[in-house]
Structures are given as structure tokens and as C-alpha cells.
């Protein structure tokens, strides 16, 4: 299934169990920006063009329009839930970053986005991920790249009771099934 990124968020599929609601969301534009995040000029350009400063390592920072996530010391993920600015941002960054060693790539079609809602979302993640997802170590604004099951993912909190997860597009069918299976009724502990 190929999704055209229109900037308008759509629900691709959803699953409800007693405790958890899982949705796959489509149409969310994403950009990968690579470059030296510790470079002062790079930082200024990103802050100016995106209106959001580069987040601290392992963090995500959002404005009304877009979010910046720290992927690695030389990689940022920019995405937006309110679409339209997308091409403008890419073009703006493209020209502003000229002369700096950098790369900007539209990865909207390469990633899938999931929203997992329900107070037991920590239990669900803990089933498949080695990350410490206790409130004390994984809280608001934290952005973590890791694995869930066998799938390489990144997740961050959408609210106290929900979490966003992104994974590679080619893994999305498998990962969606994995999530639904892991969320099945009565299977979640109440550890956290």
C-alpha cells in the first residue's frame, strides 16, 4: 500500500482491545536531516528555518507545527502533524544549509507511524523492547531509538496515556500485527 503524503493525517488501520487502542497513521511528512548537530552554524540554521531548536540528545522538541527528534549525533528527524509546510521546510533547509556538510531527505514514504493509546502502553512496550520504560526514566520529551520485537523503532510520548512509535515502512504490516497481538485482552500485566 503506497501512501501519498498530503500533509493531512489519515487513519490507515486501527485495532481496539480492552486496554489499548492502536492506530496506524498515514500522511505525516517526515524529513531526515544529517549534519554535525554540534556545529553552531548548523544549529542556527535549523532553529531559524524550523522555528524549533535542536533537541538535546535522546529528546524530542515540538512547536505548534513541527517536531524535531534527535536520532544520533549527526541525524535529526523533522516531522509535522499539520502537513503543508513540508516542502517549504525542505526547500528552505536545502538552500540554507548550502556549503555545510549536510543532507536532507524526504522519508515520508519510508516510515510508518503508530499511535498507541491507553494507560497500559508502558506494559505493551515492555513486552518487546529492552528499554527501561518506567516513568522515572522514560518521560515526556524523551525520544528513544531501539527495537520492539525484531523491529527497529523509535518512540516518544504523545501524552501521559499514549505513545507514538515509528518504524520502517516495510516492517509496518509485521509490526502492526505484533502490536495487536501483544495488546490482546488479558495479556497485559499491571507492573508499571
Amino acid at each position: 500500500m503506497m501512501l501519498k503524503v498530503t500533509g493531512k493525517m489519515i487513519e490507515v488501520r486501527k485495532y481496539n482491545s480492552k486496554d489499548i487502542r492502536i492506530k496506524e497513521l498515514g500522511g505525516v511528512p517526515m524529513l531526515t536531516v544529517r549534519g554535525d548537530l554540534s556545529n553552531k552554524r548548523f544549529q542556527t540554521i535549523i532553529a531559524k528555518t524550523c522555528d524549533v531548536r535542536i533537541p538535546k540528545p535522546l529528546n524530542i522538541k515540538s512547536s505548534k507545527n513541527l517536531s524535531l527528534a534527535w536520532m544520533s549525533p549527526d541525524e535529526l528527524l523533522i516531522f509535522s502533524f499539520s502537513g503543508a509546510f513540508h516542502e517549504k521546510t525542505q526547500k528552505g533547509l536545502d538552500s540554507a544549509l548550502k556549503g555545510l556538510h549536510s543532507l536532507i531527505l524526504d522519508v515520508s514514504g519510508a516510515r510508518s507511524l503508530f499511535l498507541v493509546e491507553g494507560i497500559l502502553w508502558r506494559e505493551l512496550l515492555a513486552k518487546g523492547s529492552p528499554v527501561d520504560v518506567r516513568q522515572s526514566s522514560f518521560a515526556k520529551d524523551a525520544f528513544r531509538r531501539t527495537r520492539i520485537g525484531q523491529v527497529s523503532v523509535a518512540f516518544w510520548m504523545a501524552s501521559d496515556n499514549s505513545v507514538y512509535i515509528i518504524c520502517g515502512r516495510s516492517h509496518s504490516d509485521f509490526f502492526y500485527d505484533w502490536l495487536c497481538n501483544a495488546a490482546s485482552d488479558g495479556s497485559l500485566t499491571k507492573y508499571f
Binding site: 540528545p57 535522546l58 544520533s72 549525533p73 529492552p130 531501539t146
Partner: peptide, 12 residues
């Protein structure tokens, strides 16, 4: 030492 996370063997 790069991202300062405690990574499990299975993440490496």
C-alpha cells in the same frame, strides 16, 4: 558512549 543510553546486547 555516543548517545549515553544503556543498550541491551540485543540492540547491538
Amino acid at each position: 558512549p555516543v548517545c549515553n543510553t544503556v543498550a541491551d546486547e540485543t540492540e547491538l
